[in-house]
Write a protein that binds this DNA or RNA. Structure first.
Length: 890
RNA sequence: GGGCGAAUAGCUCAGUUGGUUCAGAGCGCCUGCCUUACAAGCAGGAAGUCGGGGGUUCGAAUCCCUCUUCGCCCACCA
């Protein structure tokens, strides 16, 4: 039945059908009732801005591996998918689309613009979900959410009202980060600090009494137009006499005071600071302490305001900077310019340098929320992978600042605050869960706050809002809290930390216990993949070319905990070769194995009378079963510890090297009836291949399902997705078989190497002399003969004739007589090299055996085998010497 | 300016809590093979002073110190 399978695996033949079948079966759907212990992962909701990139591919592959692993282990698995409305990002995308038509959002008006965004995200959102399916993501699509859904909107309002009532949400005039391009406030986290090679200008400010001037240093000369003071440190003796005096601020005709303030660092610059309370956070604080005026000189769009001299008003901030500097120069008030490297905030969505700006915004007071979140980390309720990320988390919480949550955008959750414009009304504002139309206090008309909430204000609720909160739903009771959170480290503060705070505040429990922060996908120059650099790889293109399994295998095997993943966008073939080749190999193993299995296969173990008895197993059978068992144990542990790359490598090696290269080759005579025991070999291969497929299924779900379903006797409706995870079976452990068969492998390899070395024709059979008799060689004599093309094995000291030599790890000598075929020079060189290798081993071994610690610490039997090894090596060295003399080697 | 990570074959990377079993894998490269599952394959092979230096030890890729080079996080020195 497998003979009709093509010899080359084509994933596109099977992936979509299998995915549809899985969906129809309903295995992805979590049941809210039942006995199974839940295992829950919240998918980081992709932004509905665009198609998925390779980072999503990696992120979702990791999650799907964990989910499929736990599903097979019998947990009630819920992987909850969703998409994020991504306020600024999405609004930007649609604004750019409008710009192509020569329009702005203001041309459309708020309602029409929002309508247009909805239409846009409807398409991209659907596209994203399809892409996730193409990757094989086994999420519960029946519970898919969007952060702007009615349900989640209700949760947003609920939290806003609760925090407001608790006094943790407030409105006020503060310096915030302002993006002059997006025209909105940003949180501290959204302003990314980047080092900029700037300058520092030293400006002379004339003293009002005409007695001289004071020099201030600034990186932003244009803000001097908004200066309302100069500050010095109270204990700075250089300036003490000037405190309380006035300065004539150049260009403005304004007179401003010199004040003393602790916030000034006397060692920086000149020790005298120009104070611009409306455009600098520190200056704002100084201004508050000294009741200074705040003078806004830079507008929302980063042009100079009308409050500056006419020749500067309306200029862009950087043009104004140049103009101001030039005017200082002309007035001979520019003392000097120095190069200066400093960190400047940039908008995380558009990259524009943010402007610190005084404005009225809504804030969440964070310290009360941060404290329990910090406790949860310190008392071990949270585990970070890699561990060091936990310190980033703690550090951020310790220095937490209030969260600016209002955004001057149109796309998002509108702030649930209404203002009453009636001058006679006592109420200033109303915060409400429901839309308000008339003022509850005076009955007059109301106006809702124009702003929307930070997009993360809905994301931070996802672990419970996606389960129906604030209602007390069955889902919520069953699936909160979740288990693992898998995401990129970039959003540790934006999202992860805030989810923990929200979970503790609103649900009293951390939303997940393990936080796996995986690395970033980069190109070969270690640059982050991005659209603007054009170095991205489209995961869907990879799926189409190589299959989802190849993509997944490559991502998983290349990703160690705490490291980045480097892929070459210019060489997809080599980037994904290993995954593609492996899938193809698996396919062909399947063709061979399944094509040789009868129905039914004899059971390997169990009560049935035809079950294989232990005495029927050959050495090779025992070996592969032991290898299989070892792989089950190691791979299971690796999966559990999130060391997915290690699990992938272990299983790969077992399947390709142990099972395919060795076991399948050596059972061929038994399968083809040339040797008895075919039914036993079939039982063993059926068992081990089945286990291998199940171990691998979380990583490469499609091909493992396709092959697993084809096993003889498999019920039509059986799926590997819900097949039980392979159990460790102590009976299969067999160190003796492992060691004995290992020696057989060494012997075969040694003979092959000698044959290759001396160009023995592939079809020619050779005789081999083995210095020591071993039961394993007898037991697998057929294997040795077949795999090494050996006609006869002689257990005796080798004949005095030319030939090839090798020494096995236990000291057993191997000799291949090659008669006249031998090249004397080459053989002498080979013997010399081999002798040298042995000599090195012997020296090391002698040292080891002279070591007190080793002798006392190691078990006696280990010491004994090490002694034996040394003896054997010495014997072989002697034999090699004799051989070299015999051949007349130099 | 603080805190943290990384450096291992031409490329991308493994190498675990306690030091002996370790110098490995994949890709690439070289040689020979269309051997009745697989040429996306099979067999064999070349290639690394485990970033430099020092230390501890019988013994270090692994532990300690130091230097160099990359990277990450945090930070209101204007």
């Amino acid at each position: 039945m497998t003979h009709d399978l093509p010899s080359r695996y084509d994933p596109s033949d099977i992936e979509q059908d299998l995915y549809r079948w899985w969906t129809e079966r309903g295995d992805f759907r979590a049941s809210a009732d039942g006995e199974r212990r839940p295992y829950v992962i919240m998918m980081p909701p992709p932004n509905v801005t665009d198609r998925l990139h390779m980072g999503h591919g990696l992120n979702n592959t990791i999650q799907d591996v964990l989910i499929r692993f736990e599903r097979m282990r019998g947990r009630e698995v819920l992987w909850l998918p969703g998409t994020d409305h991504a306020g600024i990002a999405t609004q930007n995308v649609v604004e750019r689309l409008l710009a192509k038509e020569g329009k702005t959002r203001f041309d459309l008006g708020r309602d029409a613009f929002v309508e247009k965004v909805w239409r846009h995200v409807h398409d991209t959102g659907a596209q994203i979900l399809e892409q996730l399916k193409a990757l094989g993501a086994s999420c519960d699509w029946t519970r898919t959410y969007f952060t702007l859904d009615d349900g989640l909107s209700r949760a947003v309002r609920e939290t806003f009202v609760r925090l407001f009532d608790k006094g943790l949400i407030y409105r006020g005039h503060y310096i915030i980060n302002w993006c002059p391009r997006c025209l909105t406030a940003l949180s501290n986290e959204e302003a990314e600090k980047e080092d900029v090679a700037g300058k520092i200008w030293y400006l002379r400010y004339p003293l009002a009494d005409g007695s001289g001037h004071i020099v201030v240093a600034t990186t932003r000369p244009e803000t001097m137009l908004g200066d309302t003071a100069v500050a010095v440190h109270p204990s700075d003796e250089r300036y003490g006499h000037l405190v309380g005096t006035d300065i004539d601020l150049p260009l403005t005709g304004r007179r401003i005071p010199v004040v003393a303030d602790d916030g000034v660092d006397p060692s920086f610059g000149t020790g005298a600071v120009k104070v611009t309370p409306a455009h600098d956070p520190l200056d704002f604080e100084i201004g508050q302490r000294h009741q200074l005026d705040t003078l806004v000189v830079i507008e929302a769009d980063a042009t100079m305001s009308d409050s500056v001299p006419d020749d500067l008003a309306g200029l862009d901030r950087y043009d104004a900077r140049r103009r101001v500097v030039k005017q200082f120069e002309e007035l001979e008030l520019l003392q000097k310019i120095e190069p200066h490297q400093h960190a400047v905030g940039h908008c995380y969505r558009c990259g524009t340098a943010v402007e610190p700006r005084l404005s009225e915004q809504w804030f969440v007071q964070m310290a009360p929320l941060a404290s329990p979140a910090l406790d949860a980390y310190q008392d071990g309720r949270l585990t970070f992978l890699p561990k060091r990320r936990g310190e980033d988390y703690a550090q951020w919480l310790e220095g937490i600042r209030d969260w600016c949550i209002s955004r001057q955008l149109w796309w998002g959750h509108r702030i649930p605050v209404w203002y009453c414009d009636d001058e006679g009304c006592e109420a200033e504002l109303h915060v409400s869960r429901d839309d308000l139309t008339t003022c509850p206090t005076c009955g007059g008309p109301l106006r809702q706050d124009d702003d929307v909430l930070d997009t993360w204000f809905s994301s931070w609720l996802v672990p419970f809002s996606s389960l129906g909160w604030p209602d007390d739903t069955e889902d919520l009771r069953r699936f909160y809290p979740g288990d693992a959170l898998t995401t990129a480290p970039e959003i540790l503060f934006f999202w992860v930390a805030r989810m923990i705070m929200a979970g503790l505040e609103f649900k009293g429990e951390v939303p997940f216990s393990t936080i796996y922060l995986h690395g970033t996908v980069r190109d070969t120059q270690h640059r982050k993949m991005s659209k603007s650099l054009g170095n991205g790889i489209d995961p869907l293109e990879v799926v189409e070319r190589y299959g989802a399994d190849a993509l997944r295998y490559t991502l998983v095997s290349g990703m160690a905990v705490g490291t980045d993943l480097i892929l070459d966008p210019n060489d997809l073939d080599s980037s994904f070769a290993a995954g593609r080749n492996f899938a193809n190999k698996l396919w062909n193993i399947g063709r061979f194995v399944l094509g040789n299995l009868p129905d039914p296969v004899r059971p390997l173990v169990g009560p049935r009378s035809d079950a294989v008895r232990r005495e029927e197993l050959t050495l090779a059978d025992r070996w592969i079963l032991a290898r299989c068992e070892a792989t089950v144990v190691a791979a299971t542990k690796a999966y559990q510890q999130f060391r997915l790359n290690e699990a992938a490598t272990l299983i790969y090696h077992f399947i390709w090297s142990d099972l395919a290269d060795w076991y399948l080759e050596l059972i061929k005579p038994r399968l083809f009836g040339d040797t008895p025991g075919g039914d036993v070999a079939r039982a063993v291969v059926a068992q081990t291949f089945d286990v291998a497929l199940r171990l691998l299924h979380p990583i490469t779900p499609f091909i493992t399902e396709a092959l697993w379903r084809r096993f003889p006797g498999r019920p039509e409706d059986a799926s590997i997705e819900v097949a039980p995870w392979p159990e460790s079976d102590a009976r299969a452990r067999d160190d003796e078989a492992a060691a004995a068969f290992g020696l057989v492998q060494e012997l075969v390899t040694a003979v092959r190497a000698i044959r290759a070395e001396y160009d023995v024709a592939p079809g020619t059979e050779v005789r081999v002399w083995v210095s020591r008799h071993d039961e394993a060689f007898d037991a697998e004599a057929g294997t040795i003969r077949r795999l090494a093309k050996v006609s006869a094995i002689h257990y005796e000291a080798h004949a005095d004739e030319p030939g090839g030599h090798a020494v096995l790890s236990d000291g057993t000598g191997v000799f291949l007589p090659l008669g006249d075929a031998i090249d004397l020079d080459r053989e002498c060189g080979r013997l010399g090299a081999e002798h040298q290798r042995l000599a090195k081993l012997i020296v090391g071994q002698e040292k080891k055996l002279a070591n007190e610690q080793f002798l006392t610490r190691a078990p006696a039997e280990v010491v004994a085998t090490e002694r034996k090894k040394l003896g054997a090596w010495q014997d072989q060295a002697t034999a090699l010497d004799q051989k070299r003399q015999l051949l007349g080697c130099p």
